[in-house]
Amino acid sequence: MLLFRSEETVNQWCAAHNIPRRPLVNLEQLWQLAVHWYANRLTVESRRPGPDEMVFIFKSLDLTGPFWDPKSDQWR
């Protein structure tokens, strides 16, 4: 997952590497993802979110559709 100044440089990178353009995430969404994933990572209880939790977290950040579904088989 890479950082870009703008959508324009994302498109240039995708074209240069022949990689399909996929969803973009803004910094507010990215920060919220980081908090959900890692805020308790240094504690006894920490664990990675399960598939259903992931979908719930993504949906709360308006990240929806098969791309954000860890159980999707669309790309198999």
Binding site: F4, I19, N26, W31, W68, P70
Partner: peptide
């Protein structure tokens, strides 16, 4: 990720300093 231009991400007082940068997720969650 494309131009190599320096871009700074900062968290201050527990909040991100928001800019118009974007992250590109090349791989589906699955």
């Amino acid at each position: 990720g494309h131009t190599g231009e320096p871009l700074t991400l900062e968290v201050k007082n527990g909040e991100p300093i928001l800019k118009s940068y974007v992250a590109h997720f090349a791989v589906p969650a699955a």
